[in-house]
Amino acid sequence: MDWLQRFLTSTIGLKVIMAVSGLVLVGFVIGHMLGNLQIFLEFVEEGMGREALNQYGALLKGNKLLLWGTRVTLLVAVAAHIYSACVLTLRARAARPANYKQHKWLSGSYAVRTMRWGGVILLAFIVYHLLHLTVGSEVTPSIEHCKVVGDGLQCPIFDNVVQGFRQPGVVLFYVIAQLALGFHLAHGIWSLFRTLGLGNPRFDGIIKKIAVGTAAAVTLGNVAIPVSVLVGLVGGAV
């Protein structure tokens, strides 16, 4: 196992850890958004979005294996992602102890330059988001937990979301965090393919499109939910 340790502590090995954990997190972020977009079934018929979201919540929370399997996987992925980022950042600082008096960026986009601080914003957001809508009532009194009713669970997810997003300050923080996520994904998805060795010019264009497209879709989808609630498009009757 000596070779594995040597590989995983090399700069490229650490980047591979970052890329693979990033890929897991990208998958989660897409799934998370798609699941939550069910709230917009409200537009098809009133009550349909509420029903879909509540059932979706009960499904996820009811299956302990699925729930804890996902939670542990995500926790490991986030920890690995942050660990590699910290080690590499420290090494990069050590690799250039003295900064330039004058320095010009040549091609690095806004997304590239904000990967580190964007990541810090995302971490703060993840902690807040978990306290806000998962830990719930202990932190935000308006949030109610799932209840066991008969054989199944009843989860008031829809009401929680609507109550949770009626404060403009909260929605503002969500929107800022989603913009940070968008930039992080736009560079991160493209970069992870390069880190994992995809250097074929034939795929360059498509990978850039996938990266930017995913980033834009996730940001728009995730921003739409709190904003729609705040302006009363969704859950006005609650």
Partner: peptide, 15 residues
């Protein structure tokens, strides 16, 4: 030798 890692910023290829 103490070099850093690649974050695919692309600065090197332009320079």
């Amino acid at each position: 030798e103490g070099f850093g890692h690649c974050s695919n910023a692309g600065e090197c290829a332009v320079a």
